[in-house]
Amino acid sequence: MRASITRGPILEILILIVILAIIPLALMGNAYYELLAATVVLFSSMVVAWNIIGGYAGQLDLGAYAYMGVGGIVTAELWMKAGIPPLLGIFVGGAVSALIAILIGIPTFRFGIKEVWYALLTAALVVIFNNISRLLMGPFDYYLPPTTGFVYLKFNSYVIVYAIAASFLIIAFLVNFFVERSKMGYYFKAIREDELAAEMVGIDTRRYKLYALLLYSFLLGVMGYIYIVIAASYSYRIFDSSASLSIAIMGIIGGLGSVEGGIISSMVLRSLGEYFRSTFGSSLPGLDLLLYGAVLILIGIFQPEGISSLINKLLKRKG
């Protein structure tokens, strides 16, 4: 076998599309599983989007659900309050998320400021939004209108919801693909490897970190509405700290900068997590998060380059 996990991107995209197309067939029209598959695939696309800021640019962003939640709520509210169809609204949602991200990025991306403040601030951001939105929205669940149709990105069939989640995964994959092969990708990685050395080859590190953050937060903001469509409703609970952490966790377990690793880790672990949740959810809540935490520590200690390097090693040994 010659195909290395880092090579043959066109082939990879094709494989990804084929796998994503086979999944609904395998589910044999079971609506519950279709919805679950959509959840897992959307989660995966968030992890792939995270790879831009975390994997390439090396900034430990722990605020995924803040950007996602804001984008989703903005899109939903625009539809319900102003009649703007979500197909358009998702871009506004993405833009609002990106705007918030810039406000976070500007103070923390200055050169020479410790990485950890960015991690702290983004972790805090989720909690802040949770609190603020609870103040503004109360403890209620808001349901989307029953209307369906393409401009609302809302359908009666879960297979189509799944297909939309799957296309977001492919979009996120493609964005990564183009980033990695552009000047931006080189500069992001240089910043991740050594920020001072990156400055010394003339990189405006702050500007490039902001670019990474913009791409990532915009993608997540756009995905937010799909998250709400899958859940059918939204509340302040969309700003979920643990879920936010698990996005970064999957990215790290997959291997920083490895889209494939991120997809594999998120799909496998999230599916396993969902299985735990449905089997032990009432007696042992949080078993899924326990699993993520444990795998993360093991990876951090024994395989800090993630499962992608593990797979690469295996492939090398065989080939």
């Binding site: 078993l287 935490g293 951090g300 200690i301 800090p304």
Partner: peptide, 27 residues
């Protein structure tokens, strides 16, 4: 074991510990 490694991994390990403690307590 992670002291010499990159900051991101160092932070991640303690994030994992926090998640574990939280969910053990929950269980």
């Amino acid at each position: 074991p992670v002291l010499g490694k990159e900051p991101l991994i160092q932070i991640a390990v303690t994030v994992g510990l926090g998640l574990i403690l939280q969910n053990i307590a929950l269980a």
